[in-house]
Nucleic acid binder design. Sequence first.
DNA 1: TTGACATATTCCCATATAGGAATATAATAT
DNA 2: ATATTATATTCCTATATGGGAATATGTCAA
Lengths: 117, 117
Amino acid sequence: MARAPTTYDPFNAIAEPKRRQLLEALGTQELSVNELVALLGWTQPMVSKHLGVLKQVGLVSERRVGRQRLYRVNAAQLKPIHDWVTPFEQYWSESFERLNQLLGQIHKGERKNARKK
Amino acid sequence: MARAPTTYDPFNAIAEPKRRQLLEALGTQELSVNELVALLGWTQPMVSKHLGVLKQVGLVSERRVGRQRLYRVNAAQLKPIHDWVTPFEQYWSESFERLNQLLGQIHKGERKNARKK
DNA sequence: TTGACATATTCCCATATAGGAATATAATAT
DNA sequence: ATATTATATTCCTATATGGGAATATGTCAA
C-alpha cells in the first residue's frame, strides 16, 4: 500500500530533503518562486511542486504580489515535530551517554556469566 | 524517480507514523518483538519489518537474548532532527505570533493602498 | 488585444515502499 | 532428532510520489 498519502503530515513533508532545503532557504525571509529557483538552481516546476506540498501541509504560506507569489515559512507547523522529538532529547545528552555506556559494560558482564552457567 | 531511498535518513524513517509509534512504545524501555506485537496489536512481520528499517537507520539497537531480540531506542540518532527543527522554534513562540499578526495587519493595509494607486 | 513574464499544472515514467501471506531461520526444550 | 517458540525474510501487489517535458494560467505592459 506504500506510504499513506503523506501530503497532510508535516513529518512526511519534511522527509524529502529538497523540501527541507526549501524551508532553510526561506528561513525567515519571504521569497518569490524565481528567487528560489535562482537560489537553489532547480527547475521552476520543481520548486513550484515542492512549494505546493509544503503549502498543503501548511508549512509555508503564500502571498500574491503582481505576477509573483511570495512564500514564507509557517514555522508553527513545525512545532509538532519539535514536540515529538524533544522528549527523547535527554537520552543523547553527554551525561546520559556516559551512564549508558557504563550500563552497557555491566550488561555485557552479566551476559557472559549467564552463558557460562 | 520517487523519493530517494529513505532507509538511511532518519527524517524519512520517522515519516512513517507506525515507526513513530514504535519508537514511542519503546520509549526508554527495552522490549522484545512479541511484546511490541502485543502492545501495538500489529502482525509480527509488520513489527519486525518496521524495526528493521529503524535499525538500519540506527534509530534502534538490538540485543539478542535466547530466541528473543530486545530492541531499544537509540535516541542519539534523533538529534539531527531536533537540531534541524530547533532553529525554527523562535518563530512559533507566543510573543512572535503576536508580533507576526501585527505585522500582518500593517501589511494588508499597505497592499490595499498599493492597489488603490 | 498582444506579447512578455511569473508561476502552476498535467502527463508520463521509474521507483520506493507498506502490507499481507507464506515461509525461512534461529534457539530452546523434550 | 523433533517439536515449539521467537523472529526475520521473501514474494507479491497496490500505490504514492519525484523528476522531466510540455503546457496551461495568470498578470502586467505596450
